[in-house]
Write a protein that binds this DNA or RNA. Structure first.
Ligand SMILES: [Mn+2]
Ligand SMILES: [Mn+2]
Ligand SMILES: [Mn+2]
Ligand SMILES: [Mn+2]
Lengths: 221, 221
DNA sequence: ATATAATGTTAGACTAATCTAATATATTAA
DNA sequence: TTAATATATTAGATTAGTCTAACATTATAT
């Protein structure tokens, strides 16, 4: 286990690499809100610790060791979030910032107990998979709400964004993980989408919001 | 709120000052396991932040501001310990080290929720008082088990030591907070003490152990 | 009252994590 | 293919927190 700072770098490299496999110094600097030379020197350190593979002007890649470390931190983050919601009764919109701190707590006992109390959960309150103690994660299809056609029905399975303002927005629209929704209308002009909830209530979402809502199609399959 | 390091200094100054009011640089260095000059420079910083009052070669004294800060950290530590025992089902001997980390979590919401779930508790699993959100602590008499005479009966109300090895020892002797005990014998030679538990079982304790067990006399009053 | 011991301070160095300014490399666009 | 742009690296400085070695002050014990 490295320092808190090292852990945050590793975690960010992991999440940025999920799409592309490789991460650039500038991306990481943007994400961590530090300057390029700061990232440059930290990457050298992480490379010397064999957490990342790096050659100047090439991208950054986590080693197996680095990947294991990343998954361990992500596991703690997501277990913490679910615990905060399920056991402590906090809202899904307020747990991310607390989990950012709890993910650095070093206590196998603490996390084993959380895992046990939650009955070895597979997904966090935002629908993200929780790596098991070996770092294994359950794969899931991630279809965006925008990829549904008018008339299609689906279940909301995850959100691709942790930020409080985004989740507050979903709360205001009564959208939650597990909800069944049907596409009523897709606007050509601004790409906004209107849904119908199980309660028959209709809600309108911008493209930007719909994009971050992930669903499992029901009728299409 | 200062850094994690500053918080640990403030907390240690507070606990060392409980007896005497004033704390010496060397005491603090011993407690924090750092060298004298390290403490010296940190004290200067804390003085510049008005957390402590300090003049060279005099003792260190927390200011009101410093005291408030200390009580806030101690509150979080003790709430965390009780939460870990009562809600998460961990043993009183294993929670201190986790609380050392959780006490630095910055989230009023997290701690307000713990407080609420525990129904605004006054004491932690080791019998230490939990400061309320204004820093107010319930006073308690702290009579050592060694101060009882043969034949006297008392309730164990607290332990003056958080360390796992000590609490493991008490677990092995079936001693817990709330237990009613009676002094059966006090040895003159080695100052050891023999108690009888409610179960009629007798247990022998060394002076060193008995000293750290705090009780509330029943018959004497 | 002075020597000795205990305690505290200063000076200077080191590591981790950050920054700015200057420079280098790679990509893209004329 | 050269110029412009984007991206990355190096050099050198800064702050927090720590250290060792040398020196200073206070307390204690002849
Ligand atoms: Mn999160
Ligand atoms: Mn999440
Ligand atoms: Mn404790
Ligand atoms: Mn305690």
């Amino acid at each position: 286990m490295g320092s808190l700072t090292e852990e945050n770098y590793i975690k960010s490299i992991y999440s940025l690499s999920q799409a592309t496999g490789e991460v650039f110094v500038s991306e990481l600097a943007r994400k961590l809100e530090v300057k390029l030379p700061t990232v440059n020197s930290m990457i050298k350190k992480l490379a010397s610790k064999k957490m990342v593979a790096y050659a100047p002007y090439q991208g950054i890649k986590l080693t197996e060791k680095g990947k294991r470390e990343a998954l361990g931190i992500i596991r703690k983050h997501r277990l913490a979030e679910l615990f905060l919601v399920k056991v402590m009764g906090l809202g899904w919109e307020e747990v991310h910032d607390i989990a950012e701190q709890l993910e650095h707590v070093n206590s196998p006992r603490f996390y084993a107990r959380i895992d046990e109390l939650l009955n070895y959960p597979g997904f966090d309150p935002h629908g993200e998979p929780i790596p098991d103690s070996n770092g294994k994660i359950q794969l899931q299809k991630r279809t965006s709400l925008n990829d549904l056609a008018e008339g299609e029905t689906a279940i909301i399975t995850a959100v691709a964004e942790d930020e409080k303002s985004f989740l507050d927005h979903l709360n205001a629209k009564s959208l939650q993980i597990g909800n069944r929704i049907t596409i009523v209308k897709k606007e050509l002009f601004d790409c906004s989408i209107t849904l119908q909830l199980k309660s028959k209530k209709e809600v309108m979402l911008t493209h930007q919001v719909a994009e971050r809502i992930l669903v499992d199609k029901l009728n299409g399959k």
